[in-house]
Design a protein around this nucleic acid. Structure first.
Lengths: 124, 124
DNA sequence: GTCTTGAATCGACGGTTGTCGATACAGCGA
DNA sequence: TCGCTGTATCGACAACCGTCGATTCAAGAC
């Protein structure tokens, strides 16, 4: 029965990080397991910084759904190494992917990564 | 709550926290403003801990939608002051409300608080 | 009143996090 | 080959966070 909601909510099942836990039922429906909580907390921790949130938003809303690092260092007041650090955090949390193409490195938001979190926060 | 459908479809300004920033458009649609990012990060930071996530989930899924602190200290391996601290963090983030009723203190998830975050993470 | 129980606050401690400057690495063009 | 530009890594430092035991506050029960 909850499958109906999932279809509506969650597009493709393409999970970003490939993590197992905390995938389906909204957390307000039944108590979160210990493992699932650790897993989820890791992703929310990656979102728990203003710079990273803006980075993610910039990447996602950039044309083509991806952005070069050179597009991302400008809008912030922090140094280039700091931006690089934040991008690494986002990548290791399974929220974005990256690839070097020639001189530049491009980042994109992994499809489904945010949708999975959104589905979990959904209030029935 | 016939708003559910609206939330599923996309926006809907179901505010819960009463905060101003970052209320409507999914963050993958247009770049997040600086203020909105700070505001959002504060809430995600409150979610960025396994104990707090499980607390929130326990509270929300408890019968009646609220739980006494005495129901919340048992399932965890951490001390009572630590639980109290985490509850305070959740409250100050605008995610839960609390009230003392006689001997016990009850906590509940503020309606719309999680839905607002979910809407922001929604991928169009 | 005094005692008991539930919950919050305090002070302290170790670990984590965000930031920087300096440096190293990777491609490309001259 | 050399130098230039775009990114990533390193080492360091201050600030923050989660946790604890001890204590304090709140509300009843005796």
């Amino acid at each position: 029965m909850s499958n109906l909601e999932l279809q509506v909510l969650g597009q493709d099942g393409a999970d970003g990080g490939g993590e197992t836990a905390a995938c389906c039922s909204p957390m307000v429906r039944e108590p979160l397991g210990e493992e699932a909580a650790v897993d989820l907390a890791r992703k929310f921790k990656a979102l728990a910084d203003p710079v990273r949130l803006r980075l993610l938003s910039l990447i996602a809303s950039h044309e083509g759904g991806e952005a070069c690092v050179c597009d991302l260092t400008g809008p912030f007041d922090v140094s280039q190494p700091t931006i690089s650090h934040h991008l690494k955090v986002l990548r290791e949390a399974g929220l974005v992917g990256s690839e070097r193409r020639g001189t530049w490195v491009y980042y994109w938001v992994l499809p489904g990564a945010l949708a999975t979190l959104a589905a979990l926060l959904q209030t029935p």
